[in-house]
Design a protein around this nucleic acid. Structure first.
Lengths: 184, 184
DNA sequence: TTGACAATACCGTCCAGACGGTACAGTAGA
DNA sequence: TCTACTGTACCGTCTGGACGGTATTGTCAA
């Protein structure tokens, strides 16, 4: 659709995420982002005419990326089990230290409305999962547990040990009916 | 210990939570809190010599309240099943619209370090649960699911319908304590 | 009993700094 | 020439917090 922007926008978005992670979500200022991206503040405001637009773009890019990644993982194992693909992708995402989407906190502080696209995205994804998962109870429990894992990563609660974490993931995958093997 | 402070402090704390909820976590300013509490900014800074102290107190009070409530619920049913008490309390907490601890976002924006007490509290509570719950897998899954529920409440993702929510809760409680059934 | 002092609990004002955003002149590459 | 910036200067607003003042209550010696 759009003719592949010259990566200035992407550089800025990445810089914003970096600043939020490293300087804290409360210190995501335009100056800081511009510095981090290696461009001037004027240049930043040329690409994103307001801070609000920047935040919006951050959310949208995140959603696009996640959606693409999900499609990829799902296709890679023959479009058999969407829930298990969702779980595996989410777990993977939670392990990348570089991810740490703490820019979300900046967005909320700026204006909670920025999360609206995220909400509808989540709701739609859940509907999709519901349509494709026979066991509603298992879906509910695993979906919420993944949401919990995401939350704990975001807040950097290090409540679980590595083994506990692994045991959890195994349990979730088996609840999701991975490998055509349905437990209990 | 302390001779029951004249509830100015409590009033301020409550006001802070209100402001965060109503004006958004990014607009939790000392002026706003003072206005809301019906005292002057000077008075506020007398009770909490800095914004940081206010945030800290907010976190500490939350932890104290949760701990007391847990103790109460746990005692009320004969100290039989800590996990199930934890689940019931958390679910209840998530239903109170008045709760909506969005002041947490303000605290994070201010300085992520404010969550340190919360982290250690959670870790300790989890250890306690682990010691008292025979089925580790069930504990992991239910604990994480509750964490997910909390997260969804906090972010106001309304992904689940009421029935789905109820089904989830029933599943979690049955996973937690196979013995007694739930009346609700 | 009273007067002196002090601690408590606040009020109201002021200020320096940070931040978002504007304006605009200049410039290097396609 | 147009696009995509850079760089600088600047403005208005908001915010934390320092500070000086004040009203009320308590304490205690004379």
């Amino acid at each position: 659709m759009k003719p592949r922007k010259p990566n200035s926008r992407d550089k800025i978005l990445a810089a914003a995420a970096d600043v939020a992670r490293e300087a804290g979500p409360g210190n995501l200022s335009l100056d800081a982002v511009a510095n981090r991206a290696g461009i001037s503040k004027g240049g930043l405001l040329y690409n994103f005419p307001s801070k609000a637009k920047l935040m919006q773009a951050l959310v949208e890019q995140h959603l696009r990326d996640f959606d693409n990644a999900l499609e990829e993982v799902h296709s890679a194992d023959g479009r058999k089990n969407l829930l298990s693909a969702y779980i595996r992708l989410s777990v993977e995402e939670c392990q990348e230290t570089e991810a740490s989407a703490s820019w979300i906190f900046s967005a909320i502080a700026e204006d909670p409305e920025f999360l609206t696209p995220l909400k509808t995205f989540k709701r739609k994804l859940f509907e999709r999962l519901k349509a494709k998962t026979p066991d509603l109870k298992a879906l509910l429990v695993t979906y919420l547990a993944i949401e919990g894992l995401r939350s704990m990563t975001l807040f950097e609660f290090h409540t679980l040990e590595d083994e506990e974490r692994q045991l959890l993931i195994d349990s979730l995958l088996s609840l999701a009916g991975a490998d055509s093997n349905i437990a209990r």
